[in-house]
Structure formats: C-alpha cells, structure tokens
Design a protein around this nucleic acid. Structure first.
Lengths: 218, 218
DNA sequence: TTCTTGATTGACTCACCTGTCAATGTAAGT
DNA sequence: ACTTACATTGACAGGTGAGTCAATCAAGAA
C-alpha cells in the first residue's frame, strides 16, 4: 500500500530490537537509547526511521504479531479440511517457535498499552478479527452457528489466557499444557472423531516441518 | 503481621488512587504527581506513606486483587458442596461488581510489570495458588486427580483470557459471555447434573445478595 | 502550657528521556 | 569529479519524574 520504502529491512531490525527490549525491560525500561543500543546504532538513527517512539512501538507490535501471523498463514495454506483449519490456528498459536516466556512478556507489555493508543487498538482489533474468523469458519461447517461462536470465544480466551500465564512466568506453561486445555474445550462440543484426531496429527506434523525449514520467509 | 500501622486506611486510599491511575493512564502515565492529584494530596505526602513508587504500586496490586479476594472469601464461606465451591470461584471472578473494563485494564497494566519485579511476582504467585487450590479441591471430589488438574488449568486460562479481553476493550465482553465460556469448559468433563445446576443458581443468588449488601466489609 | 509525634507540603536536586539539528560519511548516478 | 540522496551520529534543548529535605501544622500527652 502506501508504505514508504525507507529500507523496510532496517525498520524490521529496529522493530525486533524494540520488541526484545519490551520483553526484557518492560514498557518503562524500553527507552529509545536502550533500543538503539540493542540494535547497535545511535538513538538519533532510530528516529531517522521512526518519527517517534509510538511509531517504533507500533512496528514492534506488528513485528511480534507477524511471527504468529506468518506461521498461521503457512499452516492455513496447507489445511484442506475444516478440522485441519482449526488445528492450523491452534498449532500456530501454541507453536514452540514463538510460545516462549520472553515473547509472551513482550506481547503482554504491548497489550497493556493498547487501550491508551487508538492505533495499537486498531492493530489488535484486526488480529482478533482474523483469528476469530479463522476459527468460526470451519467450526460453522461442523456445528450450528451458535455453537461455533461459543467455541470460538472460548478458544480465543484460552489462547489469550495461556499466553498471559506464559508471559507472567510464575508457573510452568508448556505448549503441551496449552494444547491440552484447548483440546478440553473442543471436547465439550465435539467428540474425538477420527477426522479430528487425524487433522491434529497432520497439522502438528506440518508445523514441525515448517519449523525445520527455518523461519517462514518474508 | 509485621504491618506497620501508619494509618492503614490512608494507605488504602492511596492504593486505590494509584489503581485508578493505572487503569486510566497506564504504567507510564501513572506518575507520583498524578496519583497524588487523584488522591487530592501532594506528591511528598504520598512518599510519606510509601517509601517509593514500587511500594505504592505493590499496594495498588494488593488493593485490586483484594476486591476479588474478598468476594471470593465471602462466597466460599457460603458454599457447602463441591459444586458450590467451584461456582463460588467462578462467580467471584466474573462478578459484575468488578468485571469492568477499567478494573481489567488496571489489572492488565500491573500484570505487565510482574516479570520485572520479584515482589509483584510473589504476590501474583500467591493469587494463582489460591485460585487453583480453590478449584482443584472440590474438583477432586468430583473426578480423578488428573481431570481435576486439567479442568482447573483450563478454567484459570479462560478467566485470565476473558479479563485480558475485557481490559483491552476492543470487543464486547460481558459477565454472561465469560460465564458461558467457563460453562463450556466444565461441560467437557462434567454433565449437566441437577447438583451442578442447582449449585450455580445458589451461588449466583448468593453473589447477588452480597452485592446488594454493598461491599463486603473490611 | 509545653512537648512529642506524626501529617503535610513547597522547593529543590538529580537523573534520564524524547526529539531536534547541524555536520559528516558514503554510495551511486552522471 | 561532481552531485544528489540517504545514513549516521554527537551534541543539545526542553521537559518530566523520582525522591529528599527542612519547615510548618495539628493534636494529643504530660
């Protein structure tokens, strides 16, 4: 779209440095000076690429979300059945590649700022809309609309909840634990059909392969 | 315990003011000056009661949690059966009295700081331990240990998730919506027994009565 | 009344943070 | 070689926030 080039790759590096800072030092500890140091440049250089701190943090938010988004997109492309699409979302959102305490803390730090900044708000809104839509579509083909909505809402809450708990770091939280919780919620409205189990195995395997092929490009 | 008196009531007022600030202005916007203004005193007066900002925010954290804790304790005292104890926790954690966007945002803001401060960490750890224990106890009398643990984990994640989404304020999130999600998770491992339904009605009613009697004392 | 203890505050210090700017470096095009 | 456009930076300005301190105020005890 109307994206200015301005060395997109450099911006991404800085967004990553900002995200790392947020994860390690929290919002108050994430100063331009510290981000610059993390990225190995001067503070003034940062402000050459981002006109202010808000814009930098916005990029950090897009960067952090981008990781999940890319994995999700890659898995969605592979998925062929409704259950596979559901497990694509689940796999992407609990993939060990990003399901780490530091990533979760960075995410949590940014979320806390969402209600204070309309731009962050818009970004986050889009993320929720996408995730919900990715879940409700296939779920509707497996049940009535009402059930699909209810299950979607619950899955989204569980995903948010496990990420939150992961980010707090005060109790162990593994990919397996997270997925077990999601499975439990699915059990509430769907039986352990052959189709479901098979789809899960397929998508788990697909996720593993994608992870091995080191980083979804772009 | 070893609590210094130092006008406990005054400290609570300030903790409340700090919490309000956190909810309204986020972590960076919560300055000593602003909290002081909210409380109607000078910044220096604040620091007479709290030796630094960290201690003030710690008090804010205890204050915010205290609301839920008191409601939980009151309902727990009423509960007589396992299912009633389970619904005591659920009611307390989704009570319209505290289940509000501003409260949730204050909570979210504090949570983001948890990994950066060992003291916040300890407080939050205790909160999780209590909630989990309150759920796992009664659940164990209704199922095997493994199931009790799994359901507890899921319920905790859903509660955290709905609070998070409430705090973000980018989508509607009501008490009813939150409870529907929790019910769904319970459905996964427990049928709609007469006992369960009845317990839910009892605790909902108890919560309503407590709410009418305006604020659990102390 | 006098003394003591705690409450409250304005003024101040010091550190740090954001954002600007002018100067310099650098690489590619002509 | 010259020019243009961008990259990078040190230095600086302006502002703000945390925390200190000495002085004042109020109330109860002796």
């Amino acid at each position: 779209m109307g994206r200015r080039p301005l060395s997109t790759i450099r911006r991404k590096e800085f967004a990553r440095a900002a995200y790392d800072c947020l994860a390690r030092h929290g919002m108050s500890g994430t100063t331009l000076a510290r981000v610059a140091e993390t990225a190995g440049v001067s503070k003034a250089s940062l402000l050459h690429y981002f006109k202010n701190k808000d814009e930098l943090l916005e990029a950090a938010m897009r960067y952090g979300n981008g990781i999940l988004k890319d994995e999700n997109a890659a898995l969605m492309k592979i998925a062929r059945t409704p259950w596979q699409r559901i497990y694509a979302v689940i796999e992407a959102n609990t993939s060990p590649r990003s399901f780490k305490p530091s990533v979760a803390h960075g995410w949590l730090t940014l979320l806390a700022a969402v209600p204070l900044n309309p731009q962050y708000c818009r970004i986050q809104k889009a993320i929720y809309a996408r995730t919900k839509s990715n879940l409700i579509g296939p779920l509707r083909t497996l049940s009535d609309q009402e059930t699909a909505v209810a299950v979607t809402e619950t899955l989204v809450s569980i995903i948010d909840g496990v990420w939150l708990r992961l980010g707090l770091g005060i109790e162990p939280m593994s990919t397996e634990n997270a997925r077990a919780q999601i499975e439990l919620a699915l059990d509430a409205r769907f039986g352990q059909s052959e189709e479901r189990t098979h789809a899960r195995d397929i998508m788990t395997e697909a996720s593993r392969i994608l992870m091995l092929s080191k980083g979804v490009n772009r």
